[in-house]
Simulated assay, not measured.
Amino acid sequence: MATPPSEYAMSRTPHFQELRTASGSDNLQGCFHFLFTQQHAEIDGLINVLREKRDELFKKIERMEKLVEEGEGFCVFHDAGNAGLECMKETLKTDKKMLAGLTDLLEVACEGRRESRRHVSRFE
């Protein structure tokens, strides 16, 4: 185990000292392993949430598309129905944009997870 850092080192590297304390390790390899393991776990959690939200939004879009399809058969003959149909189409368009953004974000998170996995293995 390395010698404890000097007062000078502690005052010049407060963030690394905090990492050292959190990891319970006095060597950089242990500190980095802890850091990247934590990051990997956080990204895994984010991916799970993003997948859940993506799947929920996808189902919502499918339901809205069916409503629009049905509504086009009779809503156009009613003032409120026609206005409602137009609003549903706007909402559907926005939801599809959000789904695309969520899907892109999920891809970035998956890329980050692969990267963090590589970082963890480097410091094992």
Rank of each mutant, 00 (worst) to 15 (best):
M1N: 13
A2W: 06
T3H: 12
P4H: 06
P4Q: 10
P5F: 07
S6Y: 02
A9E: 15
M10S: 08
T13K: 02
H15T: 06
L19D: 00
L19N: 00
L19F: 00
L19C: 02
R20N: 01
R20Y: 00
A22L: 13
A22G: 11
A22D: 14
D26K: 09
D26A: 13
D26H: 06
N27L: 01
L28R: 07
Q29H: 08
Q29Y: 06
C31W: 00
F32K: 09
H33P: 03
F34T: 00
F34E: 00
L35H: 03
T37A: 07
T37W: 01
Q38R: 10
Q39V: 10
H40M: 14
A41W: 10
E42W: 06
E42T: 06
D44Q: 11
D44A: 15
D44G: 15
G45M: 05
I47W: 03
I47F: 09
I47N: 06
V49C: 10
L50P: 01
L50R: 03
R51L: 08
E52F: 12
E52K: 12
K53Q: 14
D55A: 10
L57W: 05
L57V: 05
K60M: 11
I61A: 02
I61G: 02
I61E: 03
E62M: 14
R63A: 15
M64C: 15
E65M: 02
L67C: 08
L67N: 04
V68S: 01
E69L: 10
E69D: 13
E69Q: 15
G71S: 07
G71K: 03
E72I: 04
G73M: 03
G73V: 05
C75E: 04
C75G: 05
V76D: 11
V76Q: 12
D79F: 15
A80W: 12
G81M: 02
N82A: 11
N82G: 15
A83C: 05
G84E: 01
G84L: 02
G84W: 03
L85N: 01
E86Y: 01
E86S: 04
C87Y: 05
C87G: 07
C87N: 12
C87T: 08
M88E: 15
K89D: 01
K89W: 01
E90Q: 07
E90S: 03
T91I: 06
T94Y: 00
D95G: 00
K96D: 00
K96L: 00
K97G: 04
L99A: 04
T103R: 09
T103H: 04
L105K: 07
L106N: 05
E107T: 03
E107N: 08
V108C: 08
A109K: 06
A109E: 13
E111K: 10
E111L: 12
E111A: 15
G112V: 04
R113E: 09
E115K: 11
R118G: 07
H119C: 13
H119D: 08
H119T: 12
V120D: 06
S121Q: 15
S121V: 13
R122F: 11
R122Y: 14
R122W: 15
R122A: 11
F123T: 04
